[in-house]
Design a protein around this nucleic acid. Structure first.
Length: 236
DNA sequence: TCATTAAATTGTT
DNA sequence: AACAATTTAATGA
């Protein structure tokens, strides 16, 4: 398990198809896109890899091409607090990139993942040149604000079934994570880590949600059938 | 491409 | 936490 940012190693170019999975790429003009694509660093991360850690100066704006990451911090007592998972299509770190500050969280790969990084300088260049890009970032910030408010609500909830449902709804957010689509690739163990429950309890919750017709449980993943029901489950 | 084997994931106790 | 059952991934002919 390596701990250095994989963006400094194992680089690999993006295919055309993968470029199109990056949600903000299509918003750019031809020359803007070319500049962004040239600067984009892509790497494969294995489970445990740290993409960034708290305190380090922000170098990249990050995106998930494929796989699953988690955002967390370590408190003074040495416990790890997990905030959220980041599935495919998710881009994050605008806040620190905007202010050119240090990262305020750790980003770690939960599974084998394909990640991309846009250098902060290029990020700022895009902000200076593309109105569409500005809108994207603004929309991104706004949507995430909604997620964090929802996250507080989840925390105060003691019904595990509802917790799992809401957490799933967050991961299925089509605005923040357009790469997810109908099926979210996540194991029940990974979901248990993110939600903070045992795998058994998550399994039980998923079975309940499936019986309600909100999701379908598949091997190595979950299919959404009713996103609205996940956001406002009957048990709430 | 197919059959065999190993690894991963799930469902249950 | 441990177990068996099931699914997928890897291997090699």
């Amino acid at each position: 398990m390596s701990t250095d940012s994989p963006l400094h190693q194992r680089r690999r170019p993006l295919t055309e198809a993968e470029l199109l999975t990056i949600p903000w790429m299509r918003l750019l003009s031809v020359d803007e896109r070319e500049r962004a694509a040239t600067d984009l660093k892509v790497a494969d991360a294995v489970p445990g890899d740290m993409l960034c850690r708290t305190g380090r100066q922000a170098t990249y704006w990050f995106g998930v091409i494929d796989g699953l990451l988690k955002m967390s911090t370590d408190n003074a007592q040495g416990q790890t607090i997990t905030y959220t998972g980041i599935p495919p299509g998710g881009w994050f770190g605008e806040g620190t990139a905007l202010k050119r500050e240090a990262y305020r969280y750790n980003i770690q790969a939960l599974r084998k993942s394909r990640v991309a990084g846009l250098h902060v300088d290029t990020f700022h260049w895009l902000l200076d040149h593309s109105i569409a890009f500005n809108r994207f970032v603004m929309n991104q910030l706004n949507e995430r604000l909604g997620q964090f408010i929802a996250a507080r609500e989840i925390d105060r909830m003691n019904n595990p079934d509802v917790r799992v449902a809401r957490s799933l709804a967050a991961l299925f957010n089509p605005v923040l994570y357009p790469g997810v689509g109908e099926v979210l690739r996540i194991t029940q163990q990974e979901l248990a880590y993110l939600v903070g429950l045992s795998r058994q309890r998550v399994n039980e919750a998923l079975t309940t949600l499936a019986s309600q017709g909100s999701i379908a449980v598949e091997y190595g993943g979950l299919r959404v059938l009713n996103l609205a029901a996940l956001r406002a489950p009957p048990g709430a």
